[in-house]
Design a protein around this nucleic acid. Structure first.
Ligand SMILES: [Mn+2]
Ligand SMILES: [Mn+2]
Ligand SMILES: [Zn+2]
Ligand SMILES: [Zn+2]
Lengths: 134, 134
DNA sequence: ATCATAATTTATAATGATTCTAATATAGTG
DNA sequence: CACTATATTAGAATCATTATAAATTATGAT
């Protein structure tokens, strides 16, 4: 896994210096097959290297500004982020407090019939709350 | 406006004692034609009577538990509540930071094709982010 | 009305996520 | 190497929310 070089390039090309903290965070976030939904504390917990909390916040915010992460709207005490930055929807498992992707093709076409003068639609997102069946 | 009596009954029938604080909050929330979307600080600000912050939190949570209010999911530093407790969707005006109701009949039928074993759907909510057109 | 009791209100403290600060360390450039 | 802009860091500050525990109030029974 020599993604280090790839991440270094990615960071440089975004005007972010490739520090060891940022590269470590890149590995944690982007070295995976599936979409990753996480909170800051999740990220801190899975990191073996010790990165200060301030740096984690700084880095995640920088990545969000650069468009490498997306902030997800769920009413929670914590903010969630998503490595899938495309327009897509979510299940939110209220028991596990976990987000699960819901691709466009898993959702019928959404038609918003109401319009508001002087306003344009920026995004349309569905949140499907789920709980244990029993 | 002798809603006081109506609110007193409503509170009693919910097993909540009709205190002057709760009746005042009822008036602020339910004595209006339109749906009201608010945060705790919004509510504190529009109240002329002095009700302690703890009581405002307690009351809003009690009303939510009783089904008279609905918590709304937007990623914000504050929690928002809604006097419209029916299943419905929202516009979120990113410029004014205001929620606007979007009735079911303003949205085409939503079909969630993906299912998760052992899980049941609790709610399906759409958030349509809007910004100024220009 | 008086009492008894549980429910409610309240001021205040505690909590916890996030942001800020300002000192130290590091990356990029020549 | 030396210079400077950037980045990291520990710790403090902020702010919404929740917890605590004492004082007040609503209600039902005498
Ligand atoms: Mn939130
Ligand atoms: Mn929050
Ligand atoms: Zn996602
Ligand atoms: Zn609403």
């Amino acid at each position: 896994m020599d993604n280090k070089h790839i991440f270094t390039e990615k960071l440089r090309s975004s005007g972010l210096r490739p520090t060891k903290q940022r590269i470590e965070i890149c590995k944690l976030l982007f070295n995976r097959k599936d979409t990753f939904h996480f909170s800051i504390s999740d990220l801190k917990n899975i990191s073996t290297k010790k990165i200060s909390l301030a740096t984690i916040y700084n880095t995640i915010h920088a990545f969000t500004r650069k468009g490498y992460l997306k902030e997800i709207s769920i009413n929670s005490d914590k903010t969630y982020f998503d490595t899938n930055t495309s327009d897509h929807h979510h299940f939110f498992d209220e028991n596990k407090k976990k987000l699960i992707d819901l691709d466009d093709n898993n959702v019928g076409k959404i038609k918003i019939k109401k319009t508001l003068p002087g306003k344009k639609i920026k995004s349309v997102e569905i949140l499907v709350r789920i709980t244990n069946d029993n």
